[in-house]
Design a protein around this nucleic acid. Structure first.
Length: 829
DNA sequence: AGCACGCCGACT
DNA sequence: GTCGGCGTGCTC
């Protein structure tokens, strides 16, 4: 990779640098260093270079050499932006590894890794930073000129500024302006992270004194009994919990918001706005009660012990078992040794106040890195990590790209979360896997934590590649929910089932509603009915692009394709035979919602799926309504399974578990299991016993049994190693490809050709497809993936990559295709 | 990623 | 006869 060694040099020599450009190009380019910059060049610094006819880019110096290139005349680099490298040698190593592993260009990795403010290019947009009004008299002439121009035209590109100043060297000026907070650089219009605020109430310490308090009551009881109630309620609540929100107080006391407001004005109550989260309640409790239980202590010790031998340990802890507390102890230990810690969380979890809590705990040592932070903030974190000012970084997947010097520990929380994998632009990396490589590079350790570990991590743990530790009890005496399996077949026979709801489920829902508790119903299909079928000729409308049956949506009255979004009007007569006997088969969330409202007309029912949450704030609104108890029953798809914790949800109903159980491949089965376990884990909190009702035609199904017994640890493993009846046995790897073409015919031929090539190299049994699985994966004019069978050491994924790479290159030269080929992506599962 | 070059269809 | 579509190839 780094072909040039760092050169010893004097002023007189001509130096050449090899730079990484933030573009999807296959190789690095060499530039000539002007004499006066000889002393400034260093690996990891940013250089501004002209690439192509007129474009300027910020590149990273990846190597320095003295040899002039033979085949071409190297251009001079324009300028060096940094005094000190902004990218470390380790990072460069990491970039190259990532590019190789995920089959993309280093430039693409660079693009993903650097905050955009560090990547000034000619088309980069410059704006005034409105948050920081700056005293303009302190600006130099040229800076002033830029600021004035921005007054007239709020958005300028770097090229505009080049024209404005009549000079090529503008980057250093812009860099300075950025550092002075005068300008913003290319801030994406993405939604800014808005923490959710809630008002908390504390009693003025003045009234902690018994005499003062008595006096207060004396006055209030006569003049304002409602206010007296509020104060009493506060005192009552303060015995049970540490923090009291305004809403809780209103509810407990029966006094109105006005009374509380008056008390605040009288300075009896002191309000405080705090960021709160609706997600991950367990974290709050975890950090408030900081005594490790016996089981936690054992788990902590077990993790530490295993780190002596293993680089990675999987911590499997059921929902609410208090994994966070173990993380905190480990972080503390690591900081004491002076090494850095990276705490990875899935995107959504980061909006929580776990950040706040950890700040309290670790002070200014902790940094947060988040895609919804703006660029100024991101660059700030970058610099502080580089300067070793942050010992702990809490971040989403992109924080694996931060310039760590000495990473001792990476915690990957909710290790199974798919949001760790980046899908859309290359590099299509999984931060969990990248983290393992990263830690390894630094000689650090990785702790993977999850209540429902991913298949592959479980496998690695069971084969002793990873260490393994378990937390099987909920923390703080919270009971596991009761799980009841109800046979749909039996209730149908006894005629006790109404629509899709068994008598057991209805009874539980009614009980919950009577107790003013809430219910979540899970149905893993959106829309009204997934299939429309002609009763006469069995015709079903299919998507013109994707060849899957179209789902009927009652809300739009149309048939939708859930793969590509194609829509058409729902026919009233069969297009094939003209019959009017069309039948909706199966059911989705829309139908569940519809029919439940007939059975329970008084219940307030809401639906949460992709259709109801598409618009900007709708998800927020639904969650708020649920929390404020404006919703009694929430019907939803997988969305309801993810991290939603509400104290008053006591009943979870799984309308039809079978839709989760009959998937043909292990990976889908893994997901079903996780889904069931995650949904079930939501029932009951804070002293309330939860209940899970699973409706199924197949009560004896293994997966269901495992859920009841909470014994899924063996499930994965047995599925992987023993069961032969699965269509795709273990050790198959899904290799994600990204071959694009507008003509599905061409794609089809490419798919077949690719499979043929792979067969030639790996033998018939190892390659699945192309006909069934591979071709069915052609969607939206992409070949998305191919399945390969990997038996332990039999073939390396690298060989497969090489073959795929070669074959795909051939596509461009053979008559097979005129299509453009996008970088393939190997999914390391 | 941009951008130029070049080869084919539909227009003032 | 040209304008403009995008397929292809190159950028140090």
């Amino acid at each position: 990779m780094l072909e040039f060694a760092q050169a010893e040099h004097t002023d007189r020599e001509t130096l050449f640098v090899e730079v990484i450009l933030p573009l999807a190009i296959a190789k690095n380019y060499t530039y000539r260093v002007p004499y006066e910059l000889n002393d400034s060049v260093a690996i990891g610094k940013r250089a501004v270079v002209q690439f192509g006819k007129s474009k300027l880019y910020t590149a990273i110096i990846a190597g320095i050499g003295k040899q002039a290139p033979e085949k071409y005349e190297a251009k001079y680099l324009v300028e060096i932006l940094d005094d000190k490298p902004v990218v470390t040698h380790e990072q460069l190593h990491f970039w190259y590894w990532l590019a190789d592993y995920y089959m993309c260009n280093v430039g693409e990795v660079m693009s993903a890794a650097l905050p955009s403010a560090l990547k000034l290019a000619s088309e980069t947009k410059i704006m005034l930073n409105k948050d920081f009004p700056v005293d303009r008299s302190t600006l130099h002439d040229k800076e002033f000129l830029i600021v004035e121009a921005l007054d007239i035209q709020p958005e300028l590109t770097v090229s505009d500024i080049v024209k404005l100043l009549g000079q090529k060297q503008v980057m250093p000026i812009l860099k300075l302006l950025f550092e002075k907070n005068v300008i913003n650089i290319s801030e994406e219009v993405s939604e800014r992270y808005k923490p959710r605020k809630r008002t908390f109430i504390t009693l003025n310490p003045f009234y902690n004194d018994p005499d003062n308090r008595r006096e207060l009551f004396g006055i209030l009881e006569k003049k304002a009994p409602k206010q007296a109630d509020a104060v009493l309620a506060y005192i009552k609540l303060s015995r049970q919990q540490k923090t009291i929100s305004k809403n809780e107080l209103i509810e407990e006391s029966g006094a109105g918001a006005a009374s509380i407001k008056t008390l605040i004005e009288k300075e009896v109550f002191i309000p405080e706005e705090k960021n709160v989260s609706r997600l991950y309640f367990e974290e709050e409790e975890a950090i408030n009660n900081f005594e490790l239980s016996e089981q936690q202590q054992e788990a902590l010790k077990s993790v530490s012990d295993q780190f002596a031998e293993k680089d990675v340990v999987l911590l499997h802890g059921v929902t609410s078992s208090g994994k966070t507390q173990i993380y905190i102890r480990l972080i503390e230990e690591m900081i004491q040794t002076g090494r850095q810690v990276l705490y990875l969380l899935p995107e959504i979890a980061l909006t929580t106040h776990i950040i706040e809590r950890l700040r309290v705990y670790f002070g200014a040592n902790i940094g947060v890195y988040h895609s919804r932070f703006n660029d100024n903030e991101r660059v700030e974190v970058w610099q502080k990590v580089l300067n070793n000012e942050y010992k702990v970084v809490l971040g989403a997947r992109s924080s694996v790209f931060l310039p760590f010097n000495d990473l001792g520990l990476i915690i990957v929380d909710e290790e199974h979360e798919t949001s760790y994998k980046q899908f859309d632009p290359a590099p299509r990396y999984n931060a969990r896997d990248a983290a393992i490589f990263l830690a390894n590079m630094h000689g650090g350790k990785v702790l993977l934590g999850s209540a429902t570990p991913s298949f592959e991590s479980y496998y690695n743990a069971r084969t002793h590649k990873y260490g393994f530790t378990e937390l099987s009890e909920r923390f703080g005496g919270v009971e596991m929910p009761l799980v009841e399996i109800v046979s749909i077949a039996e209730e149908t026979k006894k005629k006790t089932i109404q629509s899709h709801f068994t008598s057991v489920l209805i009874a539980d829902i009614q009980q919950a509603l009577a107790n003013k508790e809430q219910v979540i119903l899970f149905q893993n299909r959106r829309g009204y009915a997934p299939v429309l079928m002609c009763k006469m000729c069995a015709y079903t409308p299919k998507c013109i692009n994707c060849d899957v049956s179209l789902t009927f949506h009652k809300s739009s009255g149309k048939l939708h394709c859930h793969y590509c979004g194609y829509k058409e009007d729902s026919p009233t007569i069969c297009p094939a035979c003209g019959s009017t006997h069309l039948e909706y088969k199966g059911f989705g969330t829309e139908k569940v919602e519809d029919e439940l409202s007939l059975i329970l007309p008084d219940a307030r029912i809401a639906r949460m799926d992709l259709d109801t949450t598409r618009s900007r704030n709708s998800l927020q609104t639904i969650l708020n309504n649920l929390e404020e108890k404006k919703i009694d029953i929430l019907v939803g798809t997988q969305m309801v399974a993810k991290g939603l914790d509400f104290a008053d949800v006591t009943v979870i109903g799984i309308i039809n578990a079978d839709s989760l159980l009959k998937f043909p491949d292990y990976r889908a089965n893994e997901r079903s299991f996780q889904m069931l376990a995650q949904v079930s884990g939501r029932a009951g909190r804070r002293g309330k016993q939860g209940k899970v009702v699973i409706q199924t035609y197949d009560p004896g199904h293994r997966v269901i049994k495992q859920v009841i017994e909470n014994d899924y640890k063996d499930l994965y493993f047995t599925e992987m190693t023993e069961r032969k009846s699965f269509k795709y046995p273990p050790f198959y790897r899904l290799i994600n490809l990204d071959i694009k073409h507008k003509d599905p015919e061409v794609l089809y031929h490419q798919a077949i050709y690719l499979a043929k090539e792979l067969r030639k190299h790996f033998g018939d049994e190892r390659v699945i497809g192309p006909q069934a699985p591979l071709v069915s994966r052609i969607r939206n004019f992409y070949i998305q993936s191919i399945l390969l069978k990997f038996e332990k050491d039999a073939i390396s994924i690298n060989k497969a990559k090489t073959v795929i790479r070669d074959t795909i290159t051939q596509f461009q030269t053979t008559k097979l295709s005129k299509g453009s080929i996008v970088q393939p992506d190997v999914d390391p599962y």
